[in-house]
Design a protein around this nucleic acid. Structure first.
Lengths: 107, 107
DNA sequence: GAGCGATTTGGCTAAACTTGCAAACAACCA
DNA sequence: TGGTTGTTTGCAAGTTTAGCCAAATCGCTC
């Protein structure tokens, strides 16, 4: 694989990597369903240290998946790319296929 | 976030994590476009140690993304869930949005 | 300017991931 | 059976990531 090809796949992998964490997926789904949320609200929902949540958000922002907006002392985050959710429907498909295979193995 | 909710998101994150690597994305695209490939062919295309490629394939198999089939001494891998590619179209969207923002910042 | 709540960043540790080499395995052929 | 090719696994080193605490920053209000 030459350097250019690698760069192409690496850029895509970076975006997937940003999504590949339970807390970050939770954030994405929350923003998709309920719109903007500030760090404090997400921290409350997630139940981790606010600094941890802030880092996750920063990572998602770095990948271009969310955008932020300052409003007074608060920072509101929102999804920047709406398709990210459709996206997860295929993940569901994989999960279902896996579950079916599990059942088949038990028979 | 309670344990059950966490488990739900963690299962999805595991699948995304399996895809979140340039070499593994390359493999997925190769299998999607060209069908079955054996480890040796993929190793040739990727240019890494065969043991490394084998490990990537094993990881993808563990996530339920690919399936394998032994044929003599060779092991052929194929995509198990065809939607994985559509899936990547959203990643493209993110990349394009990021590129456009980059341009905007340069003006 | 001091004080306060919201957020980010620095520092650090533990855990997870990636990789190549060497060795083990497996299937085939001579 | 012994050798050869294709694949996987054990091991060790290097890199990355996640999480928390503490400290710094930011915006507002008094």
């Amino acid at each position: 694989m030459d350097a250019q090809t690698f760069a192409r796949f690496d850029a895509r992998a970076k975006i997937l990597k940003a999504l590949a964490h339970p807390t970050r997926l939770f954030i994405v789904e929350e923003l998709a369903h309920r719109g903007e949320r500030c760090v404090c609200e997400l921290t409350e929902l997630i139940g981790a240290d606010m600094s941890t949540v802030s880092r996750h958000l920063s990572l998602l922002r770095g990948a271009g998946i969310v955008a932020d907006r300052k409003q007074g002392a608060q920072v509101h985050y929102r999804l920047r790319v709406p398709c990210v959710l459709d996206f997860l429907s295929c993940v569901e498909t994989v999960l279902q296929a896996n579950a079916q295979q599990q059942e088949a193995l038990l028979e």
